[in-house]
Design a binder for these strands. Structure first.
Length: 425
RNA sequence: GUGGGUGUAGCUCAGUUGGUUAGAGCGCCAGAUUGUGGCUCUGGAGGCCGUGGGUUCAACUCCCACCAUUCACCCCA
């Protein structure tokens, strides 16, 4: 390799040939969000490290080992955002959104950064589409957010993802459950894996998530949080399920999902695929009623989700979903000779100013080579400008799909192309 | 952090038990066609064979280390 500098591990270029897929899902997402009354927010790529320690939770893997953290030249500890919710919550507080009409409904399209080993569907720089809804603690909010996600996935053509749903209760029922859980695990603790022994101390809930066969065997009959949540939480969850069912949104209750971020409470959910490798979670989210408070605001309920664009695109590929290709250039303007060149340049500029997508030769190649190039560009029409054309004011307009040509006045070229575009759009 | 797979041209890949000057297809450039694309044909550019060390008369080929990449564990989007 001559070029020895490569993109850092876990990052990649999104090249022109695939950018239309990104635009497609990003535009669809924006459109659906707006239809639900959400407005876009843009937040910084980096924040004070403390925001994530408090917001995401310092027992989480993300904070413990996955953050891109550095000191800036002013000696501040700065972290590249590992997700979007904490930053949006910070912005909510900082900009006094509590005094906006409630609820506050936001969406975003961000990059995020986590220092992890790379594998299919997982990168160190990745892209998320997300929604955050602040101010409503009602089941209706949960349902609105989930239905937005559902409609979005449907609108890009995705079928057959499973929506998994769970409730992980509130801090008070979780404290109660932790006692029950610890009592159940305590006698078996010696036989569990190292990770689980750690989890037992730090965050016993996560033991439910363990994939070690030994632990799974050992923990047969483990009590699930869902079976021990308080009456209020249970009622909330029941209403969410009822409404989803009534709206025809299929889901399955999965008592094992706990979500890896500390800020979640009550409803948690994810859309999971079986076809895109072991990182099958296309999007995940949940309610986070304690988050705003834990990063310094007054108590404010909230719920949201984040969707991995890379994984969404993998899933769309695996389902063979066709994304419309970007439109071809309207015309290629070829050139013969120096005198005609300036004329052609002016013509091209006029066409472009008039809204026509136009390529012009800037290689001084042979006509034959220019035609080959125009063909590769998939240009709809070609004109060649030489001394004849400059003198006569007429050009041969060639339709590249049929090969037919037609002599026309240069003055009428722009109108013809515009009309053609209208008819064919 | 741990384990497995893979590193040869821009891309996809051949390369014999180790044996002269490392190949194909696609792509790129030019010409056949001195003012008109697609098909065809001809030619050209493009390689530290991932890097470093070792074995050998001889290494793309065998051995070791490192690096990169990929899949998986963990965890998550």
């Amino acid at each position: 390799m001559k070029m020895s500098i490569k993109a850092p591990k876990g990052t990649r270029d999104i090249l022109p040939d695939e950018i239309h897929k990104w635009h497609y899902v990003e535009e669809k997402f924006s459109e659906i969000c707006k239809r639900f009354g959400y407005r876009e927010i843009r937040i910084p790529v980096f924040e004070h490290t403390e925001l994530f320690e408090r917001g995401v939770g310092d027992t989480t893997d993300i904070v413990q080992k996955e953050m891109y953290t550095f000191f800036d030249k002013g000696g501040r500890s700065i972290t590249l955002r590992p997700e979007g919710t904490a930053g949006v919550a910070r912005s909510y507080i900082e900009n006094g959104m509590a005094s906006w009409p409630q609820p506050v409904k936001l969406f975003y399209n961000i990059t995020a950064y986590r220092y992890e080993n790379v594998q299919k569907g997982r990168y160190r720089e990745f892209h998320q589409l997300g929604v955050e809804l602040f101010g409503s603690a009602k089941p209706d909010a949960d349902v609105e957010v989930i239905s937005l996600l559902y409609l979005f996935l449907e609108s890009v053509g995705i079928r057959g993802l499973s929506l998994n749903l769970n409730s992980i209760g509130c801090p008070s029922c979780r404290a109660e459950y932790n006692r029950i859980l610890k009592a159940f695990i305590e006698p078996k603790l010696e036989r569990l894996c190292e990770d689980c022994k750690n989890r037992y101390q730090r965050n016993p809930l996560r033991i439910l998530d363990c994939k070690e066969q030994g632990c799974i065997n050992e923990l047969q009959g483990i009590p699930y949080l869902l079976d021990h949540i308080c009456d209020d939480c249970a009622e909330h969850f029941e209403k969410v399920k009822e409404k989803l069912t009534a709206m025809g949104i299929p889901f399955t209750v999965d008592k094992k999902i706990v979500r890896g971020l500390d800020y979640y409470n009550r409803t948690v959910f994810e859309f999971v695929s079986k076809n895109i490798g072991s990182q099958g979670t296309v999007c995940g989210g949940g309610r986070y009623d304690g988050l705003i408070e834990s990063v310094g605001g007054s108590p404010t309920p909230g719920i949201g989700f984040a969707l991995g664009i890379e994984r969404l695109l993998l899933e769309m590929d695996s389902q063979g979903i066709n994304v419309p290709l970007p439109p071809s250039p309207d015309i290629f303007v070829g050139v013969i000779g120096d005198k005609a060149n300036l004329f052609a340049e002016n013509l091209a500029l006029k066409l472009r100013a008039g809204g026509i997508t136009c390529h012009k030769d800037i290689m001084e190649r042979s006509v034959s080579a220019q035609m080959k190039y125009a063909n590769k560009l998939n240009a709809r029409f070609v004109v060649i400008i030489g001394d004849n054309e400059v003198e006569s004011g007429k050009v041969e307009l060639k339709d590249m799909s049929t090969g037919e040509t037609r002599m026309i006045n240069i003055d009428t070229l722009q109108d013809r192309l515009k009309k053609f575009k209208q008819v064919n759009s």
